[in-house]
Structure formats: C-alpha cells, structure tokens
C-alpha cells in the first residue's frame, strides 16, 4: 500500500501496463519517501524497467496513477522531466561526442547555462574517474566507462528524484564500490532514488526499503531485515566432493530441512532451510560422515536476499527465464515452486 502524504517523492498506485496481450504490470503500488532509496527487485521480466519507464514519462500506463515530486507523470509530464534524472538499463551516450560534449549537451537540454553545464560536466567526469578520457569520443570508451558517463549525464542538473535502472550492471568491483559511495553521497544531499538491481547485495547496501515484484505484481516489501525475517530460519550450506554425493547428502539431510533442500550440481552445493542452530549442524555432520560423503565446506548462515528471492518467487535472482522454463532453470527451482 502506498503510504501517501507529501513526504513521498514518488507515489505509485495500482499501476497497470499491458504490451499486447502481455500484462507487464498488474497493479503495482509503491512509495519512495523523500530523501530515501527504494530498491526495486525482481527476476528478469518482472516489470522493473517498465515501472522506471512509466515514472520517467517514457511510457504511458494503462491503469493506475503515479506522481513524482507531487507531479502526475501522465498529465504533468513536462514538469516531471524537469525534476528527474534517468539512467536507463542500457547506456545511452552519443558515441561520436566526447565525454565532456555528452554531458554539456545534456546539461544544456536541462536548460543549464553554458558555463554551468561546462563546470558540472568537468566535476562529474572527475567524480566518475573519466577525466583522462573526457576529450575522447565515447566510441573509444569501455562498457563500464560508458555506463559511468551515462549515470553522470543523468546527474548533471542535480535532479531531485533519480531513477537508476540496474546502475552497476557491467561495472567492475572497484567501479561498483565507487558508485555505491556516490549514491550514498547523493542521498545524504537529499536526492530521492529509485533503483532497480539484480545484485541483492547492492539493494542490501543502498536501499532503505525494498519492493520485490514478480510478473508485474508486488510480492514483498520491507527493509532487508524484514524480508529476511519473513523468510525465517537459518541456512545450512555445504559443498560436497562429487555430484553423486550431492544426491546422497540431499537424501540424508532431507528430514532436517524445514523446506525443500536446494542443490546446485555445478557448484556441488546444497542449501537447506533449518532451525536449531549448532545442534542441527552437528547432527548433519554426523549423518554425512556415516554416509561417507566428502565435505569440502560447511556452514550455518542467516538467510540472505538470494534466499528471500528464491522463497518468494520460486526462482533465483539471476535466472534468465521469466516463465521458468526448463532450458535455463535447473530442476531444483521447479521443486521449490511446488
């Protein structure tokens, strides 16, 4: 439910979007309080980009309504565009322009003066480690550099509300950390951010609240801790020596699990939701030793967002197939769905 009120910089109520017969959004509600970060999570095809595109006035909704900074995205689209910054899922930079020229162009189109556009451009290039490449055409940039330039472009006019659609996809770990710091700085300066991501760690790090959507519907919301609590229990995770042993271990331990165990043949890893802490761990070790299963690694941990995801959607976060078809979805997920 939307919390409403004037302190929400983004309010979305009952948003519906259809593409032909395909319902991409099926009544999404969410709110982003001013000056906070909302993480919008969901598997591929969940509708995250569609939400962002409607909020940034690129798409028109078929139902429901949405406001940004109190402005209706459908009827006050022009004003909305003046207060937002958008970084789309795919970098949108002009390859033939240099880094500075790209930023200056966007700055000018936000109606900044020539001088201001130039000085903002120089600052942002510096901030995003692009100063050395500032005078080279973006054609010569690596994927990560383009991504950073794209994000810089969306920040040039200091937007009040920023939409970031998978902002760190394709960035190396160092750039990703830099981006996280930068996003944290923006928030401390009062920017409101709606961010979609495939990286649960990223949402955990940056987002004050999260909304999980799947097939166009909200399936969970709350802080990272609330979501984890919703999933409950602990996770016993172990890695075994061979694939046949994986099946054997699964059989041995099934009775300890609260829910269907999850095994991955590629990593030979078995994950079981359990309760009972150390005693359960000891019991598991005893059984495996008796069965002669080689253990490479074993541990007990709190559920992470991957578990949240899997439990809520029946699919792991990074799985490609929205329909959960066999090709890219290992058998284990089908078990979890049932």
């Amino acid at each position: 439910m939307s919390r409403g009120g004037s302190q929400d910089a983004v309010v979305v109520e009952g948003l519906v979007k259809r593409f032909g017969g395909n319902t991409a959004l099926d009544g999404v509600d969410l709110a982003v309080p001013e000056g906070t970060v909302l993480g919008l999570l969901g598997p591929n095809g969940a509708g995250k980009t569609t939400v962002v595109r409607i909020l940034s006035t690129l798409l028109q909704a078929d139902g429901g309504r949405a406001t940004v900074a109190g402005l209706d995205v459908a009827t006050q689209a022009d004003q909305v565009r003046g207060v937002i910054g958008l970084t789309g899922q795919y970098a949108a930079v002009d390859e033939y322009l240099t880094g500075v020229e790209n930023l200056e162009m966007v700055g000018r189109l936000y109606r900044l003066g020539k001088k201001e556009a130039r000085s903002r451009a120089v600052d942002l290039l510096d901030r995003f480690d692009l100063s050395d490449a500032a005078r080279r055409p973006a054609k010569t940039y690596s994927g990560g550099m383009r991504r950073r330039l794209d994000i810089a472009a969306s920040l040039i006019a200091r937007p009040r509300v920023l939409f970031l659609d998978e902002p760190t996809t394709g960035l190396d770990p160092r750039s990703r950390l830099g981006m996280w710091e930068f996003i944290a700085d923006l928030v401390s300066d009062g920017t409101t951010i709606l961010l979609t991501t495939q990286y649960l760690e990223e949402a955990d790090r940056l987002a004050d609240a999260m909304v999980v959507i799947d097939r166009g519907r909200v399936i969970a919301r709350g802080t990272a801790d609330e979501l984890k609590a919703q999933v409950g229990g602990e996770r016993l995770e172990l890695t075994v020596g061979s694939v046949p042993e994986l099946a054997r271990a699964t059989e041995e331990l099934r009775s300890l699990a609260l829910d269907e165990p999850r095994s991955d043949e590629q990593t030979r890893r078995l994950t079981l939701p359990v309760s009972g802490g150390a005693a359960t761990l000891a019991e598991a070790l005893r059984r495996l030793e008796q069965a002669g299963v080689t253990l490479l690694d074993v541990g007990l941990r709190r559920p992470d967002l991957d578990d949240v995801f899997l439990t809520l959607t029946g699919r792991p976060a990074e799985d490609a197939a929205p329909s959960g078809d066999g090709a890219s979805t290992p058998a284990r997920t089908e078990e979890t769905v049932r």
Binding site: L58, I84, Y110
Partner: peptide, 17 residues
C-alpha cells in the same frame, strides 16, 4: 536503437527539437 531518443525524451527539452 542506441537509446538516445529515450534519453532525450526523458529531458525537459522541446518536443520537436
């Protein structure tokens, strides 16, 4: 194709520019 039109359409610029 390169997404630049999306970028432009998200900016508070003139619609025909």
């Amino acid at each position: 194709q390169k997404g630049l039109i999306d970028r432009f359409r998200s900016l508070p610029m003139s619609r025909s520019a």
